[in-house]
Design a binder for these strands. Structure first.
Lengths: 210, 210
DNA sequence: TGGTGTGAACAACTTCACAGCG
DNA sequence: CGCTGTGAAGTTGTTCACACCA
């Protein structure tokens, strides 16, 4: 199996969606699911689903479909979700505080181990969820102690590049960036950007007549 | 100008990014910018930028570049950002509360006019930012009073479809969905999905060796 | 029979390369 | 001369259609 010939980024994104649906189906006791069923639930073309899966192996049974439990397990493995991940957050503003409290992450195996800010007046502050804000200077020590591999950046646009550079220096390898700027990082790192204002602008565009 | 022959969704997304950069350049007093300069800042191919712009007109001057102020104005117009937009939020959990406090939205012309929940115990509660949680049943009245065109859904996965249906019935035309489910809506509506767990999973995948 | 796995056709988007113009 | 605007080429991702097999 696993001939990683060249997997589209979009496929990875969808695998994560399939996984969530499978988790749900498993909880409900569904044993078998076809690509057509999954397609219906996710609103994705069935052929797309089959193709996505075959990038990583042959998980289905012809004439039957996919065994839910088995496929769920296999996708988890493909995505590397069989271990919990330690996460830090940099930039404890409103959005940062909210994400620290967002329980969903922990349920999916992502654990906040620390939060940082460069604003001296915030350091030592205890966030609603019980995490204490630390000086960004402590990041390398924390990253080493907890083996942190993901950083969430929720600083202002101005502070984001500095945060990314600090994360890179501390050995963090993945960044989820909420600041509205492009980040330059070493090529072995992976950055994903979430740009909420862009999403709004996009809706605004489509709201226009004509 | 404006021959809307068929604009890629990706182009709209990028226009929003260009706009933010132009806003910044304008503030700094830069008068002219070339596609190469913009490309550098946004980390996008220059030809891509020129092509994106020509979907909506000829904004540049050959041999010179683009006048920052002018282009900024023109893109705002294209995106339909010359009016403020009223927004409601449905589902006042942690994430919902945080978004209500997120000042950035207001700075970009998006104004929260109300927040809703279906949980009776939350109704009447005042969020940190001063918005009072209302019964979801009041949505139609509020939508009519304020001419709401965008709803943010931050309910649980279970509550999301119901929220979307309510929004649709109230005449809302755009949805920004943070719940991890596909929403069925009338075809004249536009839904954008923000899936934070999927983003994490994506990072986890890339963290794997090999 | 029914649903997977997959090459081949198709569609969408990106980049190149250069003509055209200030 | 330099940078935009753009057809054409290239690349990437999606859908079709059907062979194949439990």
């Amino acid at each position: 199996m696993a001939k990683t010939s060249k997997v589209p980024e979009a496929t990875i994104k969808r695998l994560s969606i399939y996984m969530r649906v499978l988790k749900d189906l498993e909880k409900r006791g569904t044993e078998v699911v076809s690509s057509a069923d999954l397609a219906e639930i996710c609103n994705i073309n069935p052929a797309q689903i089959r193709k996505d899966l075959t990038y990583f192996g042959e998980f289905g049974v012809r004439g039957v479909g996919y065994y839910v439990k088995e496929l769920h397990f296999d996708i988890r493995k493909v995505l590397g979700l069989n271990q919990r991940r330690n996460v830090v957050l940099i930039g404890v503003g409103n959005l940062g505080k909210a994400l620290l409290c967002y329980r969903n992450f922990s349920e999916h195996g992502y654990e906040f181990v620390a939060a940082f800010d460069s604003d001296a007046s915030k350091i030592g502050e205890k966030t609603p969820c019980g995490i204490i804000v630390r000086d960004i200077k402590d990041l390398p020590a924390v990253a080493k102690e907890f083996s942190v591999d993901i950083a969430i950046i929720t600083t202002s646009a101005q502070g984001a590049q500095e945060a990314a550079t600090a994360a890179a220096a501390a050995g963090v390898r993945g960044i989820l960036n909420f600041a509205p700027v492009h980040l330059s990082v070493p090529k072995e790192m992976k950055v994903k950007k979430v740009d909420l204002t862009t999403e709004f602008d996009n809706l605004a565009y489509h709201l226009q007549p004509g």
